[in-house]
Design a protein around this nucleic acid. Sequence first.
RNA 1: GCAGCGGAUCGGCUUAUCGCUUUGAUUCUCAAGUAAGUCUGUUUACAGAUACUGUUUGAGCGAAGAGGAAAGUCCGGGCAACACAGAGCACUAUACCGGUUAACGGCCGGCAGGCAGUGAUGUUUGGUCCCUGGAACAGCGACGAUGGCAUCUCUAUUAGAGAUGAUGAAACGGCUACACUAUAGGUUGCAAUUCCGCGUAAACCGACGUUUGAGGGCUGCUCGUCCAAGUCGGAGGGUAGGAAGCGAGAGAAUGGCACAGUAAUGUGUCCAUCGAGACUAAUGAUAAGCGUUGUGCCCAUGCGGCAUGAUACAGAACCCGGCUUACAGACCCACUGCGUGC
Length: 125
Amino acid sequence: MRTFPKIEKLCGQLRIKALYQEGRKLTVWPFRIHCRFPEKGTPPSETKVLIWAPKSLFKHAVDRNRMRRLMREAYRLNKDEVEQRGWEVSFNYMDKEQQSFQQLEKAMKRALKRLVEEEEKQWEK
RNA sequence: GCAGCGGAUCGGCUUAUCGCUUUGAUUCUCAAGUAAGUCUGUUUACAGAUACUGUUUGAGCGAAGAGGAAAGUCCGGGCAACACAGAGCACUAUACCGGUUAACGGCCGGCAGGCAGUGAUGUUUGGUCCCUGGAACAGCGACGAUGGCAUCUCUAUUAGAGAUGAUGAAACGGCUACACUAUAGGUUGCAAUUCCGCGUAAACCGACGUUUGAGGGCUGCUCGUCCAAGUCGGAGGGUAGGAAGCGAGAGAAUGGCACAGUAAUGUGUCCAUCGAGACUAAUGAUAAGCGUUGUGCCCAUGCGGCAUGAUACAGAACCCGGCUUACAGACCCACUGCGUGC
């Protein structure tokens, strides 16, 4: 089932701080992505995700909520492959315009593909 | 009928598929765990048994799940902490008369004056002194004032100053000044506050001080009062998790009706309604259709058919009463002017 319970959300001030300081930085328009992958060989666990839209782009809380919800749905419906990889990922919306759900879903598919590639690269090192 | 004026109410709906948060309250079911209760034994604390009660986790099923402004944070309260909170000064706010309220700078009624309008009505002024006159002159302001908010820098005492950014007129004449009088205001705010957990220190270094009393007790200053043998600073260490506060104990609650009052409002214990509670922050996503409505065309007056647009402002964060600002559209009531008919 494509559920999205709380255990798959990234919580806690310390973990979020750590992610932004130590994590890799990618850009897959319209997302800015911070991510951390576990060491090779660690047992599978839930991938934790943080999704947000900045106040500087959308000044009304209604608009920020809407973008967050759309991104959340796009992730929820396409996460099957990455669900148990134990990542910590943050998606930050960057476009000034509000994109439609279809656009966001395409972008999310591209972003997840890119993340899988990045993880393989890290393992090779 | 057209135009206007004042006030009240509402502000989308349905289905399908997938998902989120809370919850089991007259009211669940299943699975897994746990040995507190319970039972047995010895013995006075252990051992064993048990899933009936309790409790934890998960699944199923059921129930509930943003607003009229949830917004701005501009007033007034509840609530909490600080010493149950004292006196004086300073500071801030208010200012015709009366009423209303838990309270208010709100609301209701009235008086006198100015301005706008044919009018319904709107708007504005109103203590004393001074004075021709009260924001009169002068200055700042949608090229963003004043205020608060966020970030950064500097000085430094918990404070102050400056810069940048967003906000957008904020109690009323947008803001800024001044003497007196009266009245009101203790300060800080849910990041309050309490408990659990983690950690632990009556430790180390420096300074000051022990009754002629250092220092402190969250208020701008002084006094008073209370605590007091320790106090302050440095260095270093830890935490930044969970629960309560927090809403089914919701209440100065909302509506109807009756009574009192011109009204705001009050009384009733008459009838009904209201049940969100997140915490990097739920209340949603997709698709189809309906409703409402603007415009154009068609048939010929049905409130039909077709095409094409519009469907706003906006998201709870401790809770109430107001105010202010934003807002597609719908609808009701009272009143005014003009026109027409009886």
